[in-house]
Write a protein that binds this DNA or RNA. Structure first.
Length: 943
RNA sequence: GGGCGAGUAGCUCAGUUGGUUAGAGCGCCUGCCUUACACGCAGGAUGUCGGGGGUUCGAGUCCCUCCUCGCCCACCA
């Protein structure tokens, strides 16, 4: 609770499990994460809005490291802006994920020995709804465990009534604008999911397959010679093919769909054949030989089989030549006589899977020697992005979105700096895609999704596109049936930035207050699927880009650089990490380990090691907190503002200067939150969002400055009572307060826990939560502060020199040593800090002249000051001298040998130049070491 | 086939516009259970900055070239 805790209430070990959940609940109860549209300055309020739309995970998803990374990045940015005073909104949500979800439910049914057809469409959807209600959205609950500060009151779902209405509206609007049409063409078809896919959903992967060259017999061959069968040729050992044309293909099974062979019109080898006919092997169906520019005479045999229904290029050729387009495969990828195919597929192959059919055809062609030859062939095969099945090109009717008009403003947005993409290199990828954009196939032959809002009249065949359900034909009153297909999942998610804020109601308060949004944070994998389409939708429906910054972060990989995934068994469950080390450890590790756009490598076999940076740092923070509460106590401290320069020690000024520098570094790393005048200017365009730099700046300050130095200087000051004690209490508390503020976006739980207990000045207008406390404001570095930093750095150097001498001479930790410091320019500085230097180096420090005792070690600081330690009495001089002298002697001998060799002309001329070079370097190095060693010997052992 | 990125300490990575002695974390070595912290403290070692060539007073950084790995895009059957 908020009441002040006694220091001893902090357990020695930080236990995240105990604290994180409770703190999260308090944030939620207090409405810390809720944005208020009335406070947005676009809606009459006084605050700049800052809005992030969460990439909606699949509703059935289970949290993995990819989500962990993505949402941590978002949360860091969102928490930063919230503290900076923006009216900050992070909209969470899930995606109904058409194919993915349907596949899962189908699998469940399969386990029960059923198919979706056994249930029928309605029951199947009911079952899927029930499944989603039961298990769906668990990922959003899991996101709470990593601290995601989303506004859960606004949780969206692409299949909710509101968002479904937006989908319909978008479809109808685009249709009205002539940007949606029904097309008859070859699309990508997944024979397992039984649906068409967009170009983006059919993903290439390089494979080694076979390129089969098949002999097609020329019909009515009368070249004055007797037609011989390939078998006869073969028997004669002849290479000459008479009456046969070799045709290369990677998919022999499509040959039953062939409607022509094509050659290049200028190809002299074949142009006398144009207009003749060949027969398809096995079936003996006659097809013409045609000429088309599409054929590349240099590839394969220079002759292409044309299969318009099963190849996108062949489809174009077929259209040009008005050829028939027989479909010779069933939707499930088995051989079948489909549309226009009649009896093209031989009966023995009907119902046989395409790959099995390929084998059988090849065997059959081998028998008749019509398989000319086979060679291995590297080519890209498209696979279904959901089930990895090889996709089949297939002729069918689908709904398409005409993309070019939509792409134009989206291209302009990135070109003119309205929207930037980080890291910069992705902008080129984005531009290239949009410049070569192809129409988007949006219909899916699925049951789970938004049904296409088109109705067909049974009577007059009228087609009705409607925002509301249609009961009867508005023209003839006849009965109507709705299009069977559903929309691509991405057709709903591309609306997310507008639909979640209330579109199509353009006057909806959230839309007015929060659109356009600010940053979109996601992985590059969905740049085309989602990001670019959202930008298009933003312009199409709102006339403005949906965000000004796209931040594409890397992928989580294992130590072999393989992408982490559950199916590969190389994943890390973020909740395991949270349970073992805490959400803060996870978050810090992820943020600090990830450069701009770079992948994050983690070892799933060694979580302890992988997350050590975050866990160790969390523990460090905890212990600083414990020290502070034990020593500073809980009674109010003086306000930092009322401390006078005279009251501050050099260490105080130094740490305050370092704090200010750290704030400036953090702000520089985070960059401008939004473009200054609506558009990114060149100099700021690619700056900012360097989260790992921000994390490192804060860590360095807390650990290397506050803990390692400043905190040590307060020992002996605090608790002594008096002014200086109060000053130290105030400064330490202030510095830690601000460190916690800086670190809160990255490590929200532990910082909030500690901050809640800090002893604040009485007058401080302290808000209830660190989560909403003010982001630190940096100031330009003052000359006084710069000077303090330089001077205290010298003190630190002196401490380092003494520590090193102690270590070099193995002086036992408990053994006091006398240190003399000599300085002309900074004598006063060292005199003032003699005690401090002694305290930090566990030595007794005096200012003055060197000891008469010749046995001494000395070190020179950067300002020329000398640190001299009399070693008599702490080390056995005789023994140490013997050791050093032995070392020196050996070094001199080695050096002598080396120098002789280098002066030997025979060696220099005959040895390889690289060897001579490295020997020279060695000589230099050894010479340097000899000088140092000699000086040491002289100081310690005398003359 | 086209484009992009990466190659820096044993591992994972930083190194802004070329500028003293190339950094961090983890790991490693030595010594310490110093009353916040051994998930720690102090000290230390380790790099032909992928190879070769070039520009420059000066290159991890710029140019050329080669090698290795990764990603994206692509209708060559």
């Amino acid at each position: 609770m908020t009441t002040m805790q006694e220091p001893h209430d902090l357990p020695a070990q930080y236990d995240p499990g105990q604290t994180e959940r409770a703190i999260y609940e308090r944030w939620v109860e207090a409405g810390v994460f809720s944005a208020d549209e009335k406070r947005s300055n676009r809606n009459g309020g006084d605050r700049e809005p800052f809005v992030v739309i969460m990439p909606p995970p699949n509703v059935t998803a289970v949290l993995h490291m990819g989500h962990g990374l993505n949402n941590t990045v978002q949360d860091v940015i969102v928490r930063w802006r919230r503290m900076a005073g923006d009216e900050t909104l992070w909209v969470p949500g899930t995606d109904h994920a058409g194919i993915a979800t349907q596949n899962i439910v189908e699998k469940q049914l399969a386990a029960e020995g059923k198919t979706k057809f056994d249930l029928g469409r309605e029951a199947f959807i009911e079952r899927t709804v029930a499944f989603v209600e039961e298990t769906g959205g668990q990922i959003l609950r899991q996101l709470r465990a990593i601290g995601a500060s989303a506004d859960w009151n606004r949780t969206a779902y692409t299949f909710s009534p509101e968002l479904s209405q937006a989908v319909r509206e978008a479809f109808v609007q685009l249709h009205e604008r002539g940007l949606i049409y029904r097309g008859h063409r070859v699309i990508h078809w997944c024979p397992r999911c039984l649906t068409s896919l967009s170009d983006e959903e059919a993903q290439h992967s390089e494979e080694t397959g076979n390129l089969y060259t098949i002999l097609y017999q020329v019909a009515d061959f009368d070249g004055g010679r007797t037609l011989r069968t390939p078998a006869a040729h073969h028997a004669e050992g002849s290479d000459t093919l008479v009456g046969y044309l070799p045709v290369a293909t990677t998919r022999p099974e499509t040959m039953f769909g062939d409607v022509a062979l094509a050659v290049h019109p200028d190809d002299e080898r074949f142009n006398q054949l144009i207009g003749r006919e060949v027969v398809i092997p096995i079936t003996n169906i006659r097809i013409p030989i045609i000429a088309d520019e599409y054929v590349d005479p240099a590839f394969g045999s220079g002759i292409v089989k044309i299969t318009p229904a099963h190849d996108a290029n062949d489809f174009e050729v077929g259209k040009r030549h008005k050829l028939p387009m027989p479909v010779i495969m069933a939707p499930d990828g088995t051989m079948a006589n489909g549309v226009d195919a009649e009896s093209r597929v031989p009966p023995e192959l009907l119902g046989i899977d395409r790959f099995e059919a390929r084998e059988r055809i090849v065997r059959s062609l081998e028998k008749t020697k019509q398989l000319h030859f086979v060679k291995p062939h590297q080519h890209a095969v498209r696979h279904c992005y959901r089930c990895d099945t090889v996709v089949e090109p297939r002729l069918s009717d689908q709904w398409f979105v005409k993309m070019e008009p939509l792409a134009k403003p989206a291209l302009k947005a990135v070109r003119d700096g309205t929207t930037r993409i980080l890291p910069e290199r992705w902008e080129a990828v984005y531009v290239h895609w949009l410049e070569n954009i192809r129409d988007w196939n949006i219909s899916r032959q699925l049951w789970w999704g938004h049904r296409i809002p088109v109705w067909y009249c049974d009577k007059c065949e009228r087609q009705i596109v409607s925002r509301t359900d249609v009961e009867a034909c508005d023209s003839c009153g006849g009965s109507v049936r709705q299009d069977e297909d559903v929309l691509d999942t991405w057709f709903s998610s591309w609306l997310f930035p507008i639909s979640t804020l209330g579109w199509p109601d353009k006057s909806a308060a959230p839309l007015v207050a929060f659109y356009p949004t600010d940053d979109l944070i996601t992985a590059p994998e969905i740049l085309f699927f989602w990001v670019s389409r959202m930008i298009m939708a933003g312009y199409a429906f709102m006339g403005a880009a949906p965000f000004h910054t796209v931040y594409l972060h890397g992928t989580v990989r294992d130590t072999n650089h393989v992408k982490m995934s559950k199916s590969l068994g190389n994943g890390i469950d973020p909740l395991d990490v949270v349970n073992s080390y805490g959400a803060d450890a996870l978050r810090y590790t992820v943020i600090s380990g990830m450069g701009m756009g770079a992948d994050l490598t983690l070892d799933h076999r060694d979580l302890e090691r992988s997350f050590a940076p975050g866990r160790n740092f969390a523990t460090k923070l905890w212990n600083i907190g414990r020290f502070l509460l034990t020593n500073v106590g809980t009674s109010p401290v003086r306000s930092i503002d009322e401390l006078t320069d005279a009251e501050l020690t050099l260490a105080d000024e130094w740490i305050l200067g370092r704090l200010n520098a750290t704030i400036l570094e953090s702000d520089a790393a985070l960059g401008p939150p939004r473009p200054t005048k609506g558009k990114w200017r060149r100099e700021e365009r690619y700056s900012g969002l360097r989260l790992s730099e921000f994390a490192e700046a804060a860590r360095r300050f807390v650990w290397n400055d506050v803990a390692d130095w400043y905190l040590e200087t307060t020992k002996g000051r605090i608790g002594g009572g008096g002014t200086d004690s109060e000053v130290a209490r105030a400064v330490l508390t202030h510095v830690f307060d601000y460190a916690l503020r800086l670190l809160h976006p990255i490590m929200p739980f532990i910082t909030e826990t500690l901050w809640q207990r800090l002893p604040f000045p009485v007058a401080a207008d302290r808000c209830e939560f660190l989560a909403t406390a003010a982001w630190p404001l940096g100031q330009p570095a003052s000359p006084r502060a710069t000077n303090a930093i330089a001077r205290f750095d010298l003190v630190r150097e002196a401490v380092g020199a003494v520590r090193q001498i102690r270590s070099d001479y193995a002086i036992p930790p408990g053994k006091p040593i006398d240190v003399i410091m000599q300085s002309r320019s900074n004598a006063a500085l060292f005199a003032d800090h003699a005690r401090l230097i002694g305290q930090l180096s566990r030595s007794t420090v005096n200012i003055g002249t060197p000891p008469s005792d010749a046995a001494a070690a000395h070190s020179v600081l950067t300002d020329g000051s000398e640190v001299i330690v009399g070693l008599g009495g702490v080390v056995d001089i005789g023994k140490e001298c013997g050791k050093l002298k032995g070392e020196l002697e050996q070094l001199e001998m080695q050096l002598d040998t080396l120098s002789k060799r280098l002066r030997n002309e025979g060696f220099v001329s005959r040895a390889p130049a690289s060897v001579v070079e490295s020997e020279r370097k060695k000589e230099e190095e050894w010479t340097r070491r000899r000088v140092q060693l000699a000086a040491k010997v002289k100081a310690l052992c005398g003359g």
